[in-house]
Amino acid sequence: MKKIKAFVDMEKEEAYLNTMAQKGWALVKYSAFSVYTFRKIQPTSSNYRVDYRAFRYKEDLEEYKAMFEDSGWVHVCGSRRSGSQYFLPKTDATQDEDIFSDLASKAARYKRWYRSALGGVLISIPLFAVAIANGKLFGYSYFDPSTWFLTPGLWEKSGSDFWSAFFLELPFVILRILPLLMMFVGVLYAILSVKAYRIYKKSLNKN
């Protein structure tokens, strides 16, 4: 079973995965665009733990995984570039434990999160500038969808004439407005990183 869910708050994400396990669904994989893949299991109470960390080299991820495995955790999923890393207790010793033993390091996962999200925002800024320049150059406005189509007289056509011309141009339109879509992603990243930053500050000041 696949589910799409977006979490910034990793404690809520952990609680969600524990609830799913209680209902008989174990996490198999987390993939791009927040897709969680689950498989059917016997309902069980779990202690999922989430870290956020991306690695430059595969060897770095391997060392990280070994450190967790040695100390009683199973690395459920997470790749070099996925960011989110998911863990479950391997033994009874870690059944009620956390993967962090102090507040500062537990909060630092949000710092890594918002830093990588800010990377997404920075990439989207020049793309947006290119998009505006392109629009000026080719005479279409991002704020008026009817100008995205450049086929002469398209909007005066009707019936199958219209639809065939419409779909013929649609792929080019999508390419044309791609920078706009990227900008939306950039704005989304900006909102999410502000949220992650707030959680970071809040979790640093707990207790």
């Binding site: 733990r49 870290d51 960390r53 060392e63 990280y64 070994a66 450190m67 967790f68 040695d70 100390s71 955790w73 434990e97 956390d98 993967i99 962090f100 033993s101 102090d102 390091s105 537990k106 996962r109």
Partner: peptide
């Protein structure tokens, strides 16, 4: 890494146990 965790636990008479995420 794991040897550090064990050593710290021993040095502190079991009082300080560093979790994997914190140690990394």
């Amino acid at each position: 890494g794991y040897a550090i965790m064990q050593n710290v636990e021993a040095l502190s008479n079991g009082k300080v146990r560093i979790a994997a995420g914190t140690l990394y």
